[in-house]
């Protein structure tokens, strides 16, 4: 019995961890491209999920709405980069942070204003009695992990084996030299923001059936995702995935065994900080040696 609860909680943790991993990945992507952490990422994902909800309400089948939402979110991310972030490329770092906070508020408020603040149900694409569900994990949990894995595999292939992916990485790593080689760095940044928006949208649509759809649904998720990205190493996509899963499991086990749900966030955060004090660059992060 004890064992069974443990395994169940572990599995539930892995499932939420998959969502954190997706969002953490989106954060890492924007960080790699721009060296900013997008605090509005969670609210952008929430807004995308509302768009998906509206499309489904309008009668579109789930997967069509899913695809449309991903495309719309891609556009949204790219437009934001172009219209809001790019003009600020000379502004001090903290000013950009404050603009992200402003964006967070705008998306939060806009979602409540357009779609209403009452909690909505969001469908899961995985039927309740699907063959891949079991006594330990619901089909949605299995599906979430599967989707997270698919995204990771796609991104890995994209960044490792395609010209566009390699170009993007080059633009992020050394904008000056990339520009000299004829890479349109600005476009690459836009593309990076678009991709992050799309990934965030998928994370939002995966988490919504679990936590239900309302404007505040992503706030906690973003904190965990941020923690996941940092614990894995902010400059390491694989680390982000690992960190996301780790935080998910940690959160669930702490909530079940050590403290109730009330103090769960606090304890999880404190634990993460302790880990970071021991390994300041994250578990898989590179320790950058500075030349003076």
């Amino acid at each position: 019995m004890m064992m069974e609860t443990f395994v169940q909680q572990l599995m539930a943790g892995l499932s939420t961890g998959g969502i954190y991993a997706c969002l953490a990945l989106a954060l890492v992507m924007i960080y790699q491209a721009t060296h900013h952490v997008n605090f509005a990422q969670g609210e952008m994902a929430m807004f995308s999920t509302f768009i998906a909800w509206a499309l489904i309400q309008a009668g579109l089948p789930y997967w069509v709405a899913f695809g449309a939402t991903v495309v719309i979110s891609f556009g949204m991310g790219a437009v934001l980069e172009f219209a809001v972030i790019r003009p600020l490329h000379k502004a001090p770092e903290l000013s950009v942070v404050v603009v992200f906070i402003g964006l967070l508020m705008v998306f939060h408020s806009l979602a409540g204003w357009i779609f209403g603040t009452q909690i909505k149900e969001f469908p899961s694409p995985f039927p309740k009695d699907a063959w891949f569900g079991g006594s330990m994990m619901s089909p949605h949990q299995v599906g979430t992990i599967f989707v997270a894995m698919c995204i990771v595999a796609l991104l890995f292939t994209f960044f490792r084996f395609t010209t566009l992916g390699l170009t993007m990485r080059a633009a992020a790593q050394n904008p000056g030299s990339s520009r000299l080689l004829g890479i349109r760095v600005g476009r690459m940044l836009m593309l990076g923001w678009g991709l992050a928006g799309a990934i965030g949208a998928v994370a939002g649509m995966m988490v919504a059936p679990v936590v239900f759809l309302d404007p505040g649904m992503m706030t906690g998720v973003l904190i965990y995702a941020f923690a996941g990205a940092l614990i894995g190493g902010i400059d390491n996509p694989v680390g982000a995935i690992l960190g996301g899963f780790l935080v998910g499991v940690l959160e669930n086990l702490i909530g079940t065994y050590i403290v109730g749900t009330e103090l769960k966030l606090s304890v999880a955060l404190v634990l993460i900080i302790v880990v970071l004090v021991v390994r300041p660059a994250g578990l898989l992060g590179r320790h950058i040696v500075q030349r003076v």
Binding site: V84, L88, G102, M105, V106
Partner: peptide, 22 residues
């Protein structure tokens, strides 16, 4: 009243656009 946060956010963003150094 409905979109107070939105207004605050927009004001904040515009403020930084006009005065990036405060």
């Amino acid at each position: 009243k409905d979109a107070a946060w939105g207004v605050y956010g927009v004001v904040l963003i515009l403020f930084i656009f006009v005065m990036p150094g405060g």
